[in-house]
Nucleic acid binder design. Structure first.
Lengths: 245, 245
DNA sequence: CGATATCTTGAGGGCGATCAAACGAAGTGG
DNA sequence: CCACTTCGTTTGATCGCCCTCAAGATATCG
């Protein structure tokens, strides 16, 4: 039993929330948090479950509390491209739109802190700290999407895979350490979907990176990189290692 | 001499502005417009000129009034990917960031309605109509970027070219007419940069679309499509023809 | 009319997709 | 405990789309 068990209560205490200082509520004062607390509700999904289909009515917005969510768009003939990978604290949904423009699914077991859209939009008007944070997060997402456009349009398969591993390692492992390690939140299929590749190509490039000593794999899901600089090099990143978002 | 000649005056009258009802100022009342008018300044560039290099200080934001601007990101080895094509009324820059995360250049002769960042950020706090519109436009841009990710990751060269032509024809030609026509605002090289292709592939696919009767070309820059449905089909679009943004 | 940039077309090669099969892990039931 | 299934992953062989390199055509401008 942990101190924060979202699955066991509808409205855990915001003060103990793991994403309290990074989510859309990051800048809220205690009284503002109380307003959010009144309209929030937790809900969880199992890995692999679909939360919404493209075109479904979407009468809520919310934050990823734990786990990972995927945003996927499909072409008519079945081709699909993941257009977003939401990690804890990321925001899902958009005020002012009532229909999902992509499919939303749970990459891992997932818990969302959800707000019905109408009352949330009301808070957006009344609480500057929420509104300002949402604008900032939206602009960050836009930058991240543009960064991903470079990957999709110009990077090689090896660079694509290395870039994704670097992203996961940077975001979910301890910030500074000799060896970075993390659990891959997504399957090879989802990796392929996000990278604009096939599953076979992803698998081959993972094997090559491992053979080259850039990464180490334990089981299928645990990755580590003895030298993040080497991984960044394989990712074709700017030398300073700076990322936009 | 037209009624609205941005090149000839520093602060043309907002009331006569061609983008008055679509830009970041779209929702402003007369008094709010007056506040913007006080801090705005026009500036123009010739086609091909670079406005900002990646990493340059960016102490302004603004709207495209006439012409087209390109946002381009580069990898170290010279590969480059256009990550945004700004048309009249689109917003350039971001409050809260002082450095350009991409190169900005003029695709065509271009005029911007610019605001220094500091006073604009002040208005963002004081004028809800500007702030709300900026959030809306940012979310639209995010949707458009994600749509483009599908193109970059999953579409064929033919579909990519058709999609871009469709975008240009839909946005710059008369909305409903038997034959849609427009001037291409960008060179083949810029098209290639935006589509994640080479210039040769773009050229070949243009020729194929012409040979197939999907488009007609007069000179290098004038395109028309006798049947937008056929072009949409070539673009691999959803049957309902709906686009996100 | 020549100079230069831009665009088109052609020939050949490589990277990633496709098709196919083997492998490994996790779960089920006898 | 072990066959058996199932699903995800890895590896192999081949194909084709788009890139690369190269030359020629067309537009633009002095």
């Amino acid at each position: 039993m942990t101190a924060f068990s979202p699955n066991l209560m509808a409205r855990p205490d915001c003060a103990a929330c793991p994403i309290r200082h990074r989510a859309v509520c990051a800048r809220c004062e205690a009284d503002e948090l109380a307003q959010l607390e009144k309209i929030k509700i937790y809900r969880s999904w199992k890995a692999g479950e679909t939360i919404l289909f493209d075109g479904d009515p979407m009468d809520f917005v919310g934050s990823v509390v734990t786990g990972c969510a995927m945003l996927t768009r499909r072409l008519e003939d079945g081709r699909s491209q993941m257009v977003g990978l939401l990690m804890p604290s990321d925001f899902l949904g958009r005020p002012g739109r009532s229909t999902a423009p992509y499919e939303v699914s749970a990459a891992t077991d997932l818990t969302l802190c959800m707000f019905r859209r109408a009352p949330f939009e009301k808070l957006l008007v009344e609480v500057p700290h929420i509104r300002d944070r949402l604008l900032e997060m939206s602009l960050d997402e836009l930058d991240a999407a543009r960064e991903w456009m470079v990957l999709l349009g110009r990077k090689t398969a090896r660079e694509k895979v290395a870039t994704l591993l670097l992203l996961v390692l940077r975001r979910s492992s301890l910030p500074i350490s000799g060896v970075a390690r993390a659990d891959l939140p997504i399957t090879r299929e989802a990796m392929a979907s996000y990278l604009g590749l096939t599953i076979e190509t992803v698998s081959r490039q993972m094997s090559r990176l491992r053979a080259d000593g850039v990464i180490t794999l334990e089981g299928l899901r645990k990755v580590s990189a003895p030298d993040l600089e080497a991984l960044a090099l394989a990712a074709g990143e700017d030398s300073d290692g700076a990322t936009i978002a």
